[in-house]
Design a protein around this nucleic acid. Structure first.
Length: 584
RNA sequence: GGCCCCGUGGUGUAGUCGGUUAACACACCCGCCUGUCACGUGGGAGAUCGCGGGUUCGAGUCCCGUCGGGGCCGCCA
């Protein structure tokens, strides 16, 4: 006889039915003559009762937590005073007539049962490396299973929506060619060609562009990507993107499809309706108002220009910055901050490149503390400061000042306990095409070298490259970048010009991207697309603190997998076959 | 490469100013218990305090080093 029901679906409608359940023992309560077992499968728990007279009693007596059982018996209503309202199946129980132990189990190194009873889960506080080492046990916990299912629901919603919109899913290779731009590649040595290497893709970028040249027109892929860089709470060496690309489109077309896709995903997976369209905010505005190219717009505390306050002041540090072409920006904290809090915020500012954090408290009478003696109370009042506020200032180069103060803004929101709820999506648009690399002393791309400049700004490419806007955009959710894309260059001449501006010699471009430059010769259509960081997306959707919580088998911060022990040494024979020698 | 935080039974923690046998909760094992559902109750086992060195009459505690874990900066087109 096969399983007739899942544990969690039983209710009073099944009363009197004979059922066969299979699952794990979540919890065992032995009352001496009477044994209760909470049987668990992926749907939930149901209480199994074993009477001493039952033929199942001997088995129930030896059963322990996490044993795997077959339970056969009859569903019966619990007496009114024995109903457990905390349990979905709490109005019924299964009177066991037969219990078969399919497997025994050792006691897990950390508890996996609590979350299934809807209780505070002690496993949430267990050392994460231990959870990763026994991930198959960790994944038995309900919140982990819920996140696996959320991931499934989101990916299904993506497939459904994009299929209906005419997108074709295409798989691109894992073993490909190293393109030494951007992140460090993971390399795979070639056995057949000594000294040569495959690289794992950092993204399917060039393949999806070639699919556009092939005429696929609309492509998507749930694509695994690989980058050999240091890890973070929101970064793994292998991670998943939703990658998509469209032909004969402008930026707005891509935004529009993606907005509807996001809305569909939220509706299907979370039951949340998102208002469309998402706001669109130019990069410069995002920096000026929020000090970030991924602003958290769920709260105010916006930054404000404060150059005029210091242009004539005796505060030499700031006036000097202004005279050197820098800027001063201010942030009004609607509270009287303590010295300790200000010191903490200053540390944040310094970590992000500011020389310091100037501050002043606005009282009913006048200004106190910090740089009060350099400022005029009337002028500060006219600037917008209000009594009771602590005003914070940073002076530096434009982007340093804004980014540092933007980080101070986020830290301040934490200090003030600012309410941050909801789903604030927005498009950050009009990114600069290039940024100046002061170390290498040349212009470098901000997105990637295949990003199309804004047509209006093309003439600036040779005269004032820093002012050229790109047709590039990021999708931002609650202060996190969850996607980024661009309209690509589809004409070979312009692509060549980009390499020139970037200082990449023809020969080098030919070596690295020759195959792609050649593809551009054969009628490449205008095209563009986007890639979502699917793991970050899921982490935000599920309220997880790190993307490791939404990845079934992640690496720890050292890039190790405590479960498999990867990376691990290999045999000398394997090395020899690959023509590799390890340097001690 | 850099900054910060954390390593004590299986798990989570306590351990004061360096001082006797390292404490508590949960989990685990055994006994008792027929309506529990975080069952109850009685008993038991279980830690050389990540590792190495130093200071000291004496180190979980102080110092140095090292290893491991986490957060961040750099880096991540």
């Amino acid at each position: 006889m096969k399983r007739t029901h899942y544990c969690g679906e039983l209710n009073e409608r099944h009363e009197g039915e004979r059922v066969l359940l299979q699952g794990w023992v979540n919890r065992r309560r032995d009352l001496g003559g009477l044994v209760f077992l909470d049987l668990r499968d992926r749907t939930g728990l149901v209480q199994v009762v074993v009477d001493p007279e039952s033929p199942a009693f001997a088995a129930a007596d030896r059963v322990r937590g996490e044993y795997v059982l077959v339970v056969e018996g009859a569903v019966r209503a619990r007496p009114a005073d024995q109903v457990n309202p905390e349990l979905a199946t709490g109005r019924v129980e299964v009177a066991a007539e037969r219990i078969e132990v399919l497997n025994e189990a050792e006691t897990p190194p950390f508890p996996v049962d609590a979350s299934w009873r809807g209780e505070d889960d002690p496993a949430e506080r267990v050392n994460e490396d231990l959870r990763l080492k026994y991930r198959y046990l960790d994944l038995r916990r309900k919140p982990m299973l819920d996140r696996l299912r959320l991931r499934h629901a989101v990916i299904k919603a993506i497939w459904d929506f994009l299929s209906d919109e005419g997108f074709v899913q295409v798989e691109t290779p894992f073993l490909t060619r190293s393109t030494p731009e951007g992140a460090r590649d993971f390399l795979v040595p070639s056995r057949l060609e000594p000294g040569k290497f495959y690289a794992l893709p950092q993204s399917p970028q060039l393949f999806k562009q070639m699919l556009m040249i092939a005429g696929v027109d609309r492509y998507f892929q749930i694509a695994r990507c690989f980058r050999d860089e240091d890890l973070r709470a929101d970064r793994q060496p292998d991670f998943t993107q939703l990658d998509l690309e469209m032909s004969f489109v402008a930026q707005e077309d891509i935004w529009e499809v993606n907005e509807r896709l996001v809305a569909h995903v939220f509706r299907e997976a979370l039951g949340v309706e998102l208002p469309l369209p998402f706001p669109r905010m130019p990069y410069r505005e995002a920096l000026e108002r929020y000090g970030s190219d991924k602003p958290d717009t769920r709260f105010g505390l916006e930054l404000e220009p404060a150059d005029a306050l210091f242009a004539e002041s005796d505060f030499n540090a700031f006036r000097g910055v202004l005279e050197d072409g820098g800027v001063v920006r201010g942030l009004r904290a609607p509270a009287e901050l303590s010295r300790k809090q200000i010191a903490g915020l200053e540390e944040v500012a310094r970590r992000y490149g500011a020389k310091g954090l100037a501050w002043v408290k606005v009282g009913g009478e006048g200004l106190t503390g910090g740089i009060a003696k350099f400022l005029d109370a009337g002028a500060l009042r006219a600037w917008g400061a209000r009594p009771g506020e602590t005003v914070l200032f940073v002076a530096d180069r434009w982007n340093t000042a804004l980014e540092a103060l933007g980080q101070v803004r986020l830290a301040l929101a934490d200090i003030l306990g600012v309410e941050r709820s909801g789903w604030n999506f927005l498009w950050v648009v009009d990114f600069p095409l290039l940024e100046w690399d002061s170390d290498l002393e040349l212009w470098t791309y901000m997105h990637h070298p295949f990003t199309s400049p804004h047509p209006e700004d093309l003439p600036l490419l040779e005269t004032d490259p820093g002012r050229v806007r790109a047709q590039a955009y990021d999708l931002v959710l609650n202060g996190t970048e969850v996607g980024g894309g661009s309209i690509r260059i589809h004409r070979r001449e312009l692509q060549q010009k980009m390499f020139d501006v970037l200082g990449i010699p023809h020969k080098e471009a030919e070596e690295k991207f020759g195959f792609f430059l050649e593809a551009l010769r054969y009628g490449a259509p205008p095209h563009g697309g986007i890639a979502w960081g699917l793991d970050r997306f899921l982490a935000l959707m599920s309220g997880a603190a790190s993307i490791r919580e939404v990845i079934p088998f992640p690496k720890n911060q050292s890039g190790r997998d405590p479960l498999t022990g990867a990376p691990a040494p290999v045999s000398p024979e394997q090395l020899a076959e690959l023509h590799l020698k390890i340097e001690e």
